[in-house]
Nucleic acid binder design. Structure first.
Lengths: 242, 242
DNA sequence: ACAAAAGTGTTGCTGGTACACCCATGA
DNA sequence: TCATGGGTGTACCAGCAACACTTTTGT
C-alpha cells in the first residue's frame, strides 16, 4: 500500500546520550558497536526504530535491551540526518537524552551488558556523528538545568545537599557557595529532609533529603535560580562539562 | 548496496512552522495540501527529504519552493514519529521553526504560491499532527525569546521600539511598561538608532532602529531579560500566544 | 493650548552574593 | 579541645518594576 510512490525511504534509528552521576563525577554510558564495519569501536547505545513504534518508544526499548535501564528521565534531543552520517547506508537518527543514577545499575552494566560508564572529560572518539550528539547533549543539560530541577534525576533516592552541590559543580565547571546553594535548594521546597545523616565526609554529618515527588511532578516549572549568573556566563563560553 | 538487511525503511519529511509579524499581530504561514487524501485541507508547508540532502537543507529548499522565502532564521524543532501520524504511509517528520518579516514577502504569497498568513488565535484545524507541531513551536518561541533576542528576526530591517514592544506583547499576551521596555532593549546595545523617525502613531514620532548585525551575530548569548518575571509565569501557565 | 504617544528620572524593593560566623561530632 | 565540613546570619549591592514626569509635534 505504497501511496507516495516517488519518494525514497531511509533507515530510521535512535541513539541515546545517557548521563550518569556516581557521587563524584559526571559520566556517559558507552557501548562497543556490535557489527561490522567499525565493530568494537565506541558508540552511543542505539538501534533501529521498529515498524509499529514511535521514536520515543524505540528509545525506551533500546535503552532497556542494551543496558537494562528503564523508567528514567528521557527526552528527545535532536535529529541527525546528513546523508553520509552512517557510512553503510543512509540512516536518519534521532538522539535522545537520558539521566540516570549510576549506582542503581552499576552491577548489571559490566556483567550482562557490556556497556561502560566513561568520565565526560575522557571520552574516546566515537563513531559517526556521535560526538556531535554528545556535545549538543552537554549544552542542553546545562541550559535545562539552569531553569529546571532536572539534575535531581541523577541523584539516588536519598542524598545530601553537598552531594548535589558536587554534581552542579561538575556540570557547570564552577564552584558554588555552599551556604547559598543549600538555601536555594531547600527554598524550592522540592526536597524533604530525612531524619538521618550521612556521616562520611564530615564529623557533623549532612542530612539526607528525598525529592518530594508530588511537588516535583506538579511543578517542574518552578524554576530555581541555582546557577549564579557568573557561573552561567563562564559555562556558555568555556563549554564546561568537559 | 543495502547492508542493514533486516531493517524497515520509512519516508522522511520535514514540516515548517513559520511565524511572521506584520506590525500588529503574530501570524503563521499555512498552505493547502496539494494531494489526495485530505487535498485542500490546511497544513504546514512541508515536503519529503531528498536523496542527497540533510533535513536542514530540505527545510530550506521546501520553504523556498513552496513560499519563495529564503535566508531567514530557521532551526530544528522536534521530530514526530508516531507510526500512524500520516494516514497514507508511515512517514517520519522533523518539524522546523522559522521567523519571517511578513512585509518582505507579502505579495508573492497570495499570487505565485498560494500560502496564507493566518492569525495565531484563529488557526483552522490542521492535518495529521501539525497542530502539535504548532503548539510546541509557540512554546519554544516564548522560551527562546525570553533569553535570546530572536524576535528581532520578525521585524523589518528598520523598526521602532514601540513596534517591537507590540510584538512582545503579542507573543507573551502581557503588557510591558514602555519605559522599562525601551531602556532594556537599548541597553543590549544590539540596536543602532537611525536619524529618522516614524511619525505615524504619535505626534512626537518614534526613532527608527536597526539591528547591529556585527554585535548580534557575535553575541547572541547576550541574554536580555526582556520578559518581566510575572509575564513569564503568566505565559507558561495560560499558554499565551493563543 | 491641548492631546497623545515617546522616552527619561527616580524611588523603593527584591533577591542574590559574599563572607563571617556558629554547629555538631570524631579523633 | 581541636579540626572539619555542614549549615545559618547578615550586610551590601545590582537590577528591576512602578509610576511620575518631561519632550515633541500635529491639530
Amino acid at each position: 500500500m505504497t501511496k507516495y510512490p516517488r519518494q525514497k525511504r531511509y533507515l530510521f534509528a535512535i541513539d541515546c546520550v545517557i548521563f550518569g552521576f556516581d557521587g563524584t563525577e559526571l559520566k556517559l554510558l558507552l557501548v562497543k558497536r556490535a557489527i561490522e564495519p567499525l565493530k568494537d569501536k565506541w558508540s552511543l547505545p542505539g538501534g533501529f526504530v521498529d515498524d509499529m513504534e514511535s521514536a520515543d518508544e524505540a528509545a525506551s526499548r533500546v535503552l532497556k535491551e542494551r543496558t537494562g535501564i528503564s523508567g528514567v528521565y528521557m527526552e528527545q534531543l535532536q535529529t541527525f540526518s546528513k546523508p553520509k552520517r552512517d557510512i553503510v547506508e543512509r540512516t536518519i537518527s534521532t538522539a535522545y537524552f537520558a539521566l540516570v543514577d549510576i549506582k542503581q545499575y552499576k552491577e548489571q552494566m559490566n556483567s550482562k551488558h557490556n556497556a561502560c560508564w566513561t568520565a565526560l572529560n575522557k571520552l574516546p572518539s566515537l563513531i559517526f556523528d556521535h560526538s556531535d550528539m554528545v556535545m549538543l547533549a552537554k549544552q542542553k543539560l546545562r541550559n535545562k538545568a539552569s531553569t529546571q530541577p532536572i539534575l535531581f534525576e541523577l541523584m539516588p533516592v536519598k542524598f545530601t545537599i553537598p552531594q548535589l552541590q558536587q554534581l552542579y559543580k561538575d556540570v557547570y565547571g564552577a564552584d558554588f557557595d555552599k551556604g547559598n546553594f543549600s538555601r536555594k535548594v531547600t527554598a524550592t521546597s522540592l526536597l524533604v529532609r530525612q531524619k538521618d545523616k550521612d556521616m562520611n565526609g564530615s564529623k557533623k554529618g549532612a542530612f539526607y533529603y528525598k525529592v518530594d515527588m508530588r511537588k516535583y511532578n506538579a511543578n517542574t516549572s518552578s524554576f530555581m535560580n541555582i546557577i549564579p549568573k557568573l557561573a552561567m556566563k563562564k559555562a556558555t563560553k568555556t563549554n564546561a562539562v568537559k
